[in-house]
Each structure stands twice: as C-alpha cells, then as structure tokens.
C-alpha cells in the first residue's frame, strides 16, 4: 500500500508549498459533490417540503439537535452552518474513497478519501480549535477566557494546555485512522480479488461486508466529528464550563 503521492512543490521564494495533488483533487471533488447535492436539493424550495428538501431539512434539524444538546441555541445558532457543512463534507469525503478506492496511475495513488490524509483531518481539527478559541475570546472576553485555563485550580494550567493539543490531535486522528484503515483493508481485499479466480471469489463477500461497514463508519465518523466540534465549541463559549 505504499504508493507514491503525486506531489507538486511550488517555490514561492521565501518558502515553498507542497501539494499532494491527489488530496487537492479529492477535496475539490468532495466540495463539488456536496455543493451539487445541497444546491439541487434546495432548488424550488416550498413551504410544504418534498423529496430532497425534506432530506436537507432533516440534516439541518439533525445538526441543530447536535448543537442544542451541547449549548443553548442562542449561542449555538451561529455554528449551525459550520456544523451542516462539516457533517456533509466529511460524510461525502469518507464515502468518496469507497467506489474507486486505490486508482493508481504510474504508481501514484490518485483516488482516495481526502479524509484518509492526516493533513486534511488535522487541518479541519485545527480549524475547529482555532474557531473555538476565537469564539471563546469573542464571547467571554479575553480575560475571562484565559482565566478558564487556571480553573478550577492554577496547577491545572499545564493539563489544560495539553488538553488543547490532545483535543485537536484526537479529533483529527480519529477521523483519519478510521477512514485510512478502511481504505487499507479495501485495498488489500482488492489485491486479493486481483490475485486469481479463487481469490476473486473469496474476496467478494468480505469486500461487500467491509464496504457496507465503511459506509456506516463514514457516516458515524462525520457525526462524531461534528458532535465533538460542537462539544469543544460549547466548552469554550459557554460560561458555565
């Protein structure tokens, strides 16, 4: 499974940026798919919803429920759009790796879940942490916000600092680990199926089972990521925590 990544390095003088073109491609595809689903579902909006509008409203209410279980809607309402976008984006990203996982061109892996790349998941997790800190300072005032690092006792300060990093790391790595592991196993099963007639027959049932499980995992991880995002946000913005 150690394929090369199609990498491109841009030299910008003072620093250089390395792009994994496969990741960028899959991110764009994910974004386009999510946008198309949402865009098509919200054409022809009616007060009496039908078809896709029902689904989208269900997603919105679902995320609303997640937010409401963590904080009151007055503070949490501003994270609604973030939550819906996150859950849709991650769910689609997780599922994208399933159909053609492991398309390899010139020994370079092109098609995969973008969330099977730790850079992507850790970026999203860092974004959540930065947002949480930003809104914590904005809504509670910097004095009160930094004061919470010494609550309930000042010797907790190092632990609180570690907690920040631990939260970010676990949030990103949980998603990455689940999806990457799923793709590894799918890749191994695909290899088994390609090994011969016996292997092909033997691989059918495990592949189907694992694909089904991966679909489940994909949705569950999207839900967990959104849920934990809201948990971390509520820790920062709610005064009672």
């Amino acid at each position: 499974m150690n394929h090369e990544s199609p990498e491109l390095t841009l030299d910008l003088g003072a620093f250089s940026l390395t792009f994994n073109l496969s990741t960028v491609l899959m991110l764009v595809i994910t974004a386009v798919v999510v946008f198309l689903i949402a865009f098509i579902a919200t054409r022809n909006l009616k007060l009496k919803p039908t078809g896709m509008q029902n689904f989208m409203e269900w997603v919105m209410d679902f995320v609303k429920g997640i937010i409401k279980s963590n904080m009151d809607w007055k503070t949490g309402g501003r994270f609604h759009i973030l939550g819906i976008t996150l859950i849709m984006f991650i769910a689609v990203a997780n599922l994208l790796g399933l159909p053609f996982s492991g398309i390899v061109i010139n020994d370079q892996l092109w098609w995969k879940s973008p969330t099977a790349d730790p850079t992507v998941t850790l970026t999203l997790a860092s974004m959540v942490t930065v947002l949480a800190t930003w809104y914590g300072i904005k809504l509670q005032g910097s004095k009160h916000y930094f004061g919470t690092f010494f609550q309930p006792m000042s010797f907790m300060f190092p632990l609180k600092i570690i907690e920040e990093f631990a939260n970010t790391l676990t949030l990103g790595l949980r998603l990455y680990g689940n999806i990457y592991a799923g793709e590894i196993l799918l890749g191994l099963l695909a290899g088994l199926a390609g090994s011969g007639v016996v292997g092909f027959v033997g691989a059918i049932i495990p592949t189907m089972a694992w694909q089904g499980f991966s679909i489940f995992i994909g949705f569950i991880q999207a839900f967990i990521f959104t849920m934990l995002t809201m948990v971390y946000l509520s820790h920062k913005v709610s005064a009672d925590h």
Partner: peptide, 18 residues
C-alpha cells in the same frame, strides 16, 4: 516534509464551500 499546500487547500476549499 510538511504538506503546507494541502493544509492551505483544505482550508480554502472548505471555507469556499461553506
């Protein structure tokens, strides 16, 4: 090496999508 480009791409794509 650190894939700074991927970080940037993820952020930009996600924020534009949002």
């Amino acid at each position: 090496h650190f894939n700074g480009g991927d970080v940037l791409a993820t952020l930009v794509i996600f924020l534009i999508l949002m």
